[in-house]
């Protein structure tokens, strides 16, 4: 770049042209080549484990060994996929119900809390908010033992026998999702919700709830995208709670997958297909909504 002239014409419009280039044409030729080479290299590295999963899942179980993990299947079969689907379909359904409900509930609570902490504060709000945030960071091991006992106590109350498996997970993921959702919404509202509008609403005599439903909620979509994706993914991918709180008959897909992978006579195509089946919903979410996720992060949810 001709920097010497650029300095001289600091205010001049023509300089802007250099930044207005079409994507991919910025920098020198060598720079661009290196940049794309690196991007492709990292792309290959990131996709490598997925490659192993996919090729293995289409192989015949009889001739799969770890030493052939990199080679393409000699002949394709979907036996592994069928077997994986057969054993994972019920827990997959349970995971779906569990992760969707937990994501919705934590997002709603997070949105309400975020609104209060950002714009409708009360004395001690900062302290309480900080106490909430600490809940996000605790190692869940530190509460697992009493949690397990407490939930079993609830379950053994008369009429509460149904409270097992994914219902416990819904409660747990909803509650442990509150801190992060609150944080995301609070940061989002702090930038996306101008004080002036709230003041105007107040002048109009709107109470808190009306302000929330008529002003805050309509602009909350980007925040909800982020919290829903985040919560759905973390509830879906959780294994620790599933291990402690559920069993093979009522657990989510991560639990079932671990059983599939830990079996005595491992059927590798089935296991690898199982990994893909169990990850498909979250992969789809990221492929289809990843843009919005990053967009949501960019719209002020991060700081």
């Amino acid at each position: 770049m001709a920097t010497s002239t650029a300095t001289a014409t600091r205010e001049a419009i023509p300089v802007r042209v250099t930044t207005g280039q079409a994507p991919g044409t910025e920098g020198t030729m060598t720079g661009r080549v290196i940049r794309y080479a690196l991007i492709i290299l990292f792309l290959v590295m990131v996709l490598m484990p997925l490659y192993v999963l996919i090729v293995t899942s289409f192989k015949h179980s009889a001739n799969v060994t770890a030493s052939e993990a990199w080679s393409l299947p000699r002949s394709l079969t979907i036996d592994g996929w069928q077997a994986a689907w057969k054993s994972l379909a019920p827990p997959l359904g349970r995971s779906l119900i569990m992760a969707v409900i937990a994501a919705i509930l934590s997002s709603i609570l997070g949105s309400l809390n975020g609104f209060v902490f950002a714009r409708w504060r009360f004395p001690g709000a900062t302290t309480i908010f900080t106490l909430f945030l600490f809940g996000m960071f605790i190692p869940y091991q530190a509460i697992m033992i009493p949690l397990q006992g407490m939930l079993i106590d609830v379950q053994s109350q008369p009429g509460m026998g149904w409270f097992d498996g994914i219902w416990k997970l819904i409660v747990v993921h909803t509650i442990f999702g509150i801190p992060i959702c609150t944080l995301i919404f609070r940061n989002y509202y702090a930038t996306a919700l101008p004080n002036e509008i709230l003041e105007a609403a107040k002048v109009d005599g709107a109470g808190m709830l009306r302000t929330y439903t008529s002003i805050v909620l309509p602009i909350s979509a980007p925040g909800f995208v982020v919290t829903m994706i985040w919560q759905f993914t973390s509830a879906w991918n959780d294994f620790l709670f599933a291990l402690f709180l559920t069993n093979r008959n009522n657990g989510p897909v991560t639990y079932a997958l671990n059983e599939l992978a830990g079996g005595q006579n491992p059927n590798y195509p089935q296991i690898m297909a199982g990994v893909l089946v169990a990850s498909l919903p979250t992969l789809l979410v990221y492929i289809l909504l990843g843009r919005y996720f990053i967009g949501g992060l960019m719209s002020g949810s991060v700081k």
Partner: peptide
């Protein structure tokens, strides 16, 4: 059936 797979019974014993 309350079977738990894996690890020569190690996972099951934990559960």
């Amino acid at each position: 059936n309350l079977a738990v797979a894996g690890g020569a019974g190690a996972n099951a014993k934990a559960k």
